[in-house]
Design a protein around this nucleic acid. Structure first.
Lengths: 129, 129
DNA sequence: TTCTGTGCAAATCTTTTGCATGGCA
DNA sequence: TGCCATGCAAAAGATTTGCACAGAA
């Protein structure tokens, strides 16, 4: 696995503290909103600006280093991984990565080749039950 | 099929001109954003206020009369129908309803009973090809 | 008549932008 | 050193709210 620095290098983005902090935060949390990333990083890095997070999330998305998970009421972000589906808890809002089954991938790939596919399951997670 | 008035009556929402206009607009367009609904209705109904659309979309969603389709960069809304998936054109942003296949529904229903399932396919529509 | 819904304007949030300065390569 | 990235503050955009009045039941 590449380091975050290598990932950034290979995308022609400079490996700034701010970018590495954002990627570490997403790596640690799995999924986080702009505001959550900001609040968390600010603890150890008080000069971090919200505008910097917006700008970086935008460029990291352009380079496909991070992906947006479109949930209500706010989008969250994750480090781009293999395609997978998301289980979203209607109560606490936590997002859990789940597998696309092969059968589903095959069927969708046949019908909609090369398209981006997003599957969301909204239910109640084990903790909230 | 119920009329929109009956739908509103049975949800204890008054059948105002504004609400009927919103539902007619969604019925006509299939999918529309807040701004699109507003711009379109204002043509024939200049006193229609944007705040009224926000308030009504919110109450219509609460009553599950309309559903939100979470697309980028703006959400769109549709009249609630049978569960279905969405094909979203990456170029023009048009949304097309597509069927969930029985195989997919069965598999997901077995794994995640009674959950709300959303599937989005992002690709390029016939017009834009 | 009653009470919910509307329209307006202000308030609040969210996101973007411009620009001077800082810091990675 | 050369540029890209950052931080700040202001601007722009999106959404919500409060309140007096209008209109559906």
């Amino acid at each position: 696995m590449q380091t975050f620095k290598e990932l950034l290098d290979s995308s022609a983005l400079k490996a700034t503290h701010q970018r590495l902090a954002i990627l570490n935060e997403l790596d640690k949390k799995g999924h986080a909103s702009i505001e959550e990333i900001y609040e968390s990083i600010k603890q150890n890095f008080p000069s971090m600006s919200l505008a910097t997070i917006y700008k970086n999330i935008s460029s990291l998305k352009d380079k496909q280093i991070v992906s947006e998970v479109c949930t209500h009421p706010k989008s969250k972000f994750e480090i781009t991984k293999e395609p997978h589906a998301h289980f979203i808890c209607k109560i606490c809002g936590e997002i859990e990565d789940i597998e696309f089954s092969d059968a589903i991938i095959d069927e969708l790939e046949k019908k909609y080749p090369k398209s981006k596919k997003e599957l969301y399951i909204y239910s109640i997670c084990d903790k909230c039950k």
